[in-house]
Each structure stands twice: as C-alpha cells, then as structure tokens.
Simulated scan of single mutants.
Amino acid sequence: MYDPTRLAALVAVAEAGSISRAADRLGYTAPALSQQLAKLEREAGTALLVRHHRGARLTAAGELLLVRARRVLDELEQARHELSRLTGLSGGRLRVGTFMTAGTHLLPPALNAFRRAHPDVELSVTEYVPPQATAAVALGEVDLALTHEYVPGEAMPPPEGVRLEPLLTEELVLVTAPGHALSAGAGRLPLAELAGQPLVSMAPANPNRRAVEAVLAAAGASVAVRCESPSYAVVCALVSAGLGVAVVPEMMAEGSVTPLGVRRLDPPELLRRISVAYRPDGGAPAADTLRALLRGAFTRHSPTP
C-alpha cells in the first residue's frame, strides 16, 4: 500500500517541476523530500522521476501513478473534512511550541497534514529553548510543544501536569570542514581519535556541551574549545569555515546551509531525544490530533544507551 504522504510528494513534484520547489511548497527540506520519493520508487518497483539540470520530470510510470495519486488524495481530503465536522475540529485555535531544529525539519510536514485535514483551525507557532517549552505547556501558553533532552545529560523532569511522549532519538555526529581527514573514512570514527582536535562548541552552560566533553574525556579524547556559539547553525558555519570540528545532532548536520563533512561516532552513545510535551488532562482535540500526526510520522525506536 502506498503511503499518502509520498503520493502527495509525487504530486507536488509534478506540479512544481522540481524537488526543491516542491519541498518549499510542502514544508520539507529538499533532502527529506528526496528520501520520501526514493521510498515511493522502491514501493512502486520502478523509477518515477528523471532528474535534470532544470528540475525533475515524471517517467511514464510516474505519470500513471500521478493520476491515481490525485484521486486517492482527493478522497482522503474529503474524508478528513467529513471527519473534522464529525469530531468538531471545524474551528478554534491550536497553539504549538517548538525549538528551532524541530520547527525547521519536523513540525512543518505535520502541520501541513493537519492544515489539510482541518483548514478552519487557526494555527500559531512559538519558538522556545528547551526546557522553556514544557513550562509553556504547563502554564497554558501553548497546547503542546516539541522539546528535547540529551543522553547522557542532566535529567529535566517535566512540570506537574505535563507528560512527555518520545518521538525520535537521533545520534550526535562529528562535523568537519569539507575534505577534513576525520570525515574521510566510511566507518564510524572512534571517539579517541578526536584527541587534540580544536572544538567548536556551544556556550559553557549548555547541557549538551557538558555531556559531549564528559564523554570525550572518558574516551581519552581531550579537546580544546576554540570557538563558542549558542546556535548550532553558527557552530556548523564556523566548522565549515575551518575553525575546528564539532559534535552536533544529526538533523543539524543534514540540514546545514554550509557544506560539511559528516561522520558517525563510535560508540554511538551521544544522543538527542525529541519529545512532544502535552497535558494529558484537559487537552484540546486539535492538540490530540496533531500529536497523533507527529507520532505516526516520526516515532521510531532507538537503543537505549
């Protein structure tokens, strides 16, 4: 059975004429949309797109599937409208909190699906630095929020009345300037090989910085912090410019606007767990619906260190 999200991706590329323009329309990054299309091609068992210097066009198989995809999506949208009226999600407001990475890479596709299903619900999105998002949920400033914690790291239990539902766990990876020797290998890089490397890192009070430096020290890799920044985007830009190496969440490495070398670390014990914070009692139906969309789209099981 074809995933409707991937069918929508095919329709968007057909209408936009390129993967990048389709990604902008759907709220994806271009690499994320390419992954969805690749999965659809594997499901179909044949090539659906031909990429060229001006964009992308559908193959004969893609054109055939496009017709069916539009019918399926039209039927699903009609069903969503009917269910919205049935469940009372034909108005009201949904207030969502997020942190920057999730707001850039995870939230837009889920909100796009929510908007298609419930076009009359007013949406608002507010950015927070974790753990401020969970406090905002507790205070009723937002209906639910995406937040994160680092493993290993300091435990930050949510406020009373707020529950955390894990969505996904991502590794922290090494990023370097393009062509750097440490990013040249195909396998995982032992942590000990970072010894002596100049490190671009977060601000001293950041929990992730403390966790990274503790793990590196335990592996016998003493590092010297050369530059500091409170922003992962700036950290990646400084690394790309050659000021040092950094250990950042995989999602930040993949979405960096500056070119980077990327390599996974061994052992893979530095993790970031992304969760949705919500109030189990008294939550709005719209919040429950978006939480279900997030769960269905992003929940995956990862080993616990």
Rank of each mutant, 00 (worst) to 15 (best):
Y2G: 02
L10Q: 08
V11M: 09
S20H: 14
L26E: 03
A32C: 13
L33A: 11
L37K: 15
A44C: 02
T46Y: 15
H53D: 13
L58W: 02
G62E: 09
R68A: 11
A69E: 06
R71T: 05
L73D: 13
D74W: 03
T87Y: 11
G88H: 07
G88Y: 04
L89I: 07
R93H: 15
T98H: 01
F99R: 11
H105V: 12
L106H: 05
P109K: 15
R115M: 07
R116L: 14
V121N: 11
V129G: 14
P130N: 03
G140A: 01
G153Y: 07
M156A: 13
E160Q: 12
V162N: 03
R163L: 05
T169L: 05
A184L: 12
G185D: 08
G187Y: 09
G187A: 14
P190W: 03
L194C: 03
A195W: 00
V223D: 10
S231K: 11
A233L: 12
A233H: 09
A237Y: 02
G242M: 06
L243P: 01
E250K: 07
M251H: 05
A253M: 11
A253G: 12
A253C: 05
G255N: 15
R264W: 09
L265I: 02
L265E: 01
V276S: 04
A277H: 05
A277E: 10
Y278V: 05
P280H: 00
R291D: 09
T299S: 15
